[in-house]
Design a protein around this nucleic acid. Structure first.
Lengths: 342, 342
DNA sequence: TATTAGCACTCCTGATGGTTGAGTGCCAAG
DNA sequence: CTTGGCACTCAACCATCAGGAGTGCTAATA
C-alpha cells in the first residue's frame, strides 16, 4: 500500500463530498467535472481503481460509480476534512436555546438534546451528568402514612430524588425528624459517595427500626449514583426514518430498538468521555452492531474543568462532518457554560 | 339501507375475523369455506355485494376480495363481537407484573405500560393520574446558594416536585424555615387546587421579598397541576413498525412523531375518561388525523371510586379486539387495585 | 511515462407485454 | 332464493428489451 499523492487525495475528498451531498455513487465522469482539476474521466478512473484497491472506496456493483468505505470516511475526517465554522444561523439558534440562564438542570439538558436534533436532522443525545461527586445537601423523612416513610434527598446542585420506604412499625414525626437531623448533621455537605460508604460501615450490625430507615435511605443514595450511570436523553430518533440508506425497515427497527435500550450506547459513550475533544465513530468503529451503518459524533462537556458527560448526534455515515463537528463541539461548550452557572 | 339478516351478519363476522387473522382481503371462495355454512361462493358474493353497498366492506381493487371499512369494524365490535375471557397465560402475566405491591406509583404506571405493549405487540400507553385533587403534604425551602432557593413540594400520595427559585436578595436559612413553616401550617393537608387559589388571593398586592418566594412556590404548585395535564407514558411504539399496513414509511413517520408529541393524544383520551367502560376509537373516530389508520382501545382506571386516568393500546384497525378488549379492561382494573394500595 | 480517447462489456433501470390466478358481476337454470 | 357457469378485470409475476451510466483495458499520444 503506497502513499496517496496529492491528486488522489483531492479526488477522494471531492468524491466523498459529492457522495455526502447526494447520497448516490459517484462516477468518473461526474467526479472529473466536480473536482475542478482539468483531467479526463479515464484518468480519474485509474485513480479510483487505485483507491478501491487500497480500501477507501467500493462500488456497489459493476457499473455504478463508487462510494466511500468506512476506511475512506475515516481517512477523510482525519486527513482531508476542513471543518467550517458554525454558520451564523446555527450559532444564533444555539445561543438562543442554550445561551441564557436556565435554572433547571434537567431543562438545560433537554434543550441541548433538542437543539442537536433540530439542527442536524438526525438523532441527538445527551448523556447526563454523573452525580458521583455531588455532595449531599439535605435529607427529609416524611411519614406519609402508617408504616410508610417518604425519603427525600437533595444534592448541592439542587437535584432531588425521593423514595418510599416501608417500615415495620409506625414511626412518629418526631422520630423521623430526629433521624433526619442526625443525617443532615452527620453527612450534610459530604460527597454522596462518602455518605454511602460511611453508612454502609456504621449500619453493618445494628438492627434498630430507625436504622432500617437510614439503611433504606442509603440504598436510595446508592440508586442515585447507580441509576444515573444509565441516564441519557435522546431526541429525534425518528429523523433517522428519513434516511434512504436505512430504509430497509428491518435494520432500522433494530437500530431504533437499540436506541431505545440505550444501555450499550451509554457504554460506548462513557469510553469517549475520557477524550476531551470531539470524537467520531464511523460504522463498526463503535463496536456496537446495530450502529454499524451509522456514525456517531460526540463531545464531552466540561463544567469547572471537569468532564460531566457527553453529547452528540447519531446519523448516517454520510453526514456533513464539516458542519456536524463544530456544531457538536459548540453545543458541548455552551452546555458546559450553561451548567456552570447553575 | 335495510337490516342485515342473520346469515349476512354471520358472514360479515367471519370475514372480519379472517381478515384480522391474515391481514389480506377475503374472497368469496375462502369466506364460503371458512364460514362453516353450506353455501356456495356465488351466494356469498351476492351477500358481499350487499354488504359493500351498505358500507361495511370495500374492495381495494376490482378483483381482490374485500376488507372491512371502519364502519364495518364498528358494527363488528358493537354487534358481532364476542369478547373472550383473558387467556390464563396473559392473566398470569398481568398478575405477576401488577398484582403485588409496588410502593412507587411511577413504577406501577410503567409496569402497566410495558405489560400492555408486551401482550399486544402494539403500542401501550398510560395516561398518568391527575393530581388536581391531591392534597399538599409538605413544603421545604432550601437555600441552595446565594439568591437561589430550592422549593420542594410533597403531596399526600408521595409525589415530589421541585424547582429552583431565584431571589433578589440572599435569604437566611432561618427565614426560609419560617416561610416553610408558615406554608405548612397554613396549607398542609389542603387540596393543591385550594392552596393555589388562596395564595393567589393572599399575595395579590404584597411585594415583600419573602412573598416572592411564596409566589414562586405557588407557580410551582400550578405547574404540578398543569404539566401533569400532559403526562403520559408510551411503550412499544416500535412494534407499530412491524405492521405491514403501516409500512408506507411516510405515514408511519407522521404517526410516530405524533405519538411523540402526545399532546393531541392526551386530549383524545381525556374525553374517554368520562366513560367508565372500555372504549374503542376506530380509524377516524379518534378525530386525530395521524391515527386514521389505527384503532385505539382505552379504559379508565379507578381508585377509590374515582377515575384517575386512562390506559390502553394503539394498533392497526385490524387488531384482535376480542382479546385486546378484556386485556385492556383487566389491566385497568389491576392498575386501579395496585394504585389503591399505595 | 503519464494521460487520454476509444471501445467492448457489465449491470442497473424502466418500459413493455404476456401470462396467471384470484376474484368479481351477471345471467340463466334449478 | 340459490347455484353453476362464464366472461371480465386486475394485480402480480416474469421475461424481454432498450437505454444509459459506468467500468476496465488497450493503444495512441504528448
Amino acid at each position: 500500500m503506497m502513499a496517496m499523492d496529492e491528486r488522489a487525495r483531492h479526488l477522494l475528498k471531492s468524491l466523498i463530498e459529492q457522495h455526502i451531498a447526494n447520497g448516490v455513487p459517484v462516477g468518473s465522469r461526474q467526479l472529473a467535472k466536480g473536482a475542478g482539476l482539468n483531467i479526463s474521466p479515464a484518468t480519474v478512473r485509474n485513480v479510483m481503481a487505485d483507491l478501491e484497491d487500497e480500501g477507501y472506496l467500493i462500488s456497489p456493483h459493476t457499473s455504478a460509480g463508487r462510494i466511500p468505505t468506512p476506511v475512506g470516511y475515516r481517512f477523510f475526517v482525519d486527513a482531508l476534512l476542513r471543518v467550517v465554522p458554525l454558520s451564523p444561523e446555527s450559532h444564533q439558534l444555539l445561543i438562543h436555546r442554550l445561551g441564557h440562564y436556565i435554572p433547571d438542570t434537567e431543562q438545560v439538558l433537554h434543550a441541548a438534546t433538542e437543539v442537536l436534533s433540530e439542527l442536524t436532522h438526525m438523532a441527538g443525545f445527551v448523556r447526563v451528568p454523573r452525580r458521583a461527586n455531588r455532595t449531599l445537601r439535605h435529607v427529609d423523612f416524611l411519614a406519609l402514612r402508617e408504616k410508610e416513610v417518604l425519603a427525600i434527598f437533595v444534592t448541592d446542585k439542587g437535584d432531588v430524588e425521593n423514595r418510599l420506604i416501608r417500615t415495620e412499625h409506625a414511626l412518629s414525626a418526631a422520630e423521623l425528624n430526629q433521624a433526619a437531623n442526625f443525617f443532615n448533621e452527620s453527612y450534610g455537605g459530604r460527597p454522596l459517595q462518602e455518605v454511602i460508604q460511611h453508612l454502609q460501615r456504621d449500619l453493618q450490625q445494628s438492627r434498630h427500626e430507625m436504622d432500617r430507615i437510614l439503611r433504606s435511605a442509603m440504598e436510595l443514595g446508592e440508586e442515585m449514583l447507580e441509576e444515573d450511570q444509565q441516564r441519557m436523553l435522546i431526541e429525534g430518533e425518528f429523523q433517522l426514518l428519513d434516511l434512504p440508506e436505512l430504509a430497509g425497515s428491518e435494520r432500522l427497527r433494530k437500530l431504533l430498538n437499540a436506541v431505545r435500550q440505550k444501555r450499550d450506547l451509554v457504554h460506548l459513550l462513557d469510553s469517549s468521555m475520557r477524550s476531551s475533544e470531539v470524537r467520531l465513530f464511523i460504522g463498526e468503529e463503535s463496536g456496537f452492531a446495530p450502529l454499524s451503518d451509522c456514525s456517531v459524533v460526540s463531545a464531552p462537556y466540561v463544567v469547572d474543568g471537569e468532564v460531566l458527560g457527553v453529547l452528540g448526534v447519531i446519523g448516517p455515515m454520510r453526514m456533513p462532518y464539516q458542519q456536524i463537528i463544530p456544531l457538536v463541539d459548540g453545543t458541548a461548550h455552551l452546555l458546559g457554560r450553561a451548567l456552570s452557572q447553575s
